[in-house]
Amino acid sequence: MSKEGIIFSIEEFSVYDGPGIRTTVFFKGCPLRCNWCHNPEGLEARVQVVKSPNGCIACGACKEVCKYKEGCVACGACIPVCPRSLIRFSGTKYTAEALSKKLLKNADYLSQAGGGVTFSGGECFMQWEFLCEVLTLLKGKVHTAIQTCGYASNEVFCKGLSLVDYVMFDLKILDEEKARKFTGVGTEQILKNFRSLSTSGVPFVVRVPLIPDVTDTEENLKAIAETVAQSNARGVELLPYNKMAGSKYTMVGKVYNPLFDEQKAPNVNLAPFVQRGIKVKIM
């Protein structure tokens, strides 16, 4: 039997994840640790138990049944005992066959509406074997897209490219030191894959999260625009920072600790792109 994938959400009618009406599949696990990450459920590549803090009456029922007080093993014993149904598993295991079957149930609508399926995360290349298997099963049946941070081995990345119809590629920070500080990884591997993408013939756009004083600086946006200008990208999509980013951390037992001024509005600066004749839009 082929390897199972771990998915933490499947969103139908996702409208900001590629052309047309799409279903977006969120893979669990990410090699980056972006300081502003708004989807901490996507960080760990394993099934987790998550608990929504809103509405908790601190009745203690979940603690009472817990046999692994030193460290959660995601046994799920606490899930049914919560009187407010606030606890759930994050992450569902799918075989490639099961996932593609589920996705294809809506293939007719997706195709009619000029859309398809988008694989996002986390980082979908973290589970690349599973990703490639699903893409193979969907090939020719529904339009596919991936949304990626670009951090993967070049071999794996190119294999993925050979199977997909559209790519949304993140360029976050091009300064090496800052990249390591704010995302946990350097730029070398990402840029290498970006070059592969650019010459692959697969249509793609570049996505830039606008984080106040981190990615939205003139210097960074210029560097990104320069890189984009030299590529075959169809355009750039800017994603202004959303103050709700920290809201899911408590749920996964983590603390949100932004190293930037969250209250500051991101600088939505289109000029570096417009000046270079790059199509740019704000999402």
């Binding site: 047309g20 009406i21 509406a113």
Partner: peptide, 22 residues
């Protein structure tokens, strides 16, 4: 928030069309 820009609005319109066509 789905309607925050033209893209969202366009796609909702597409969804209505989809409903009608099906």
């Amino acid at each position: 928030t789905l309607f925050r820009n033209e893209e969202g609005t366009q796609k909702v319109a597409r969804l209505v069309k989809l409903f009608v066509e099906n």
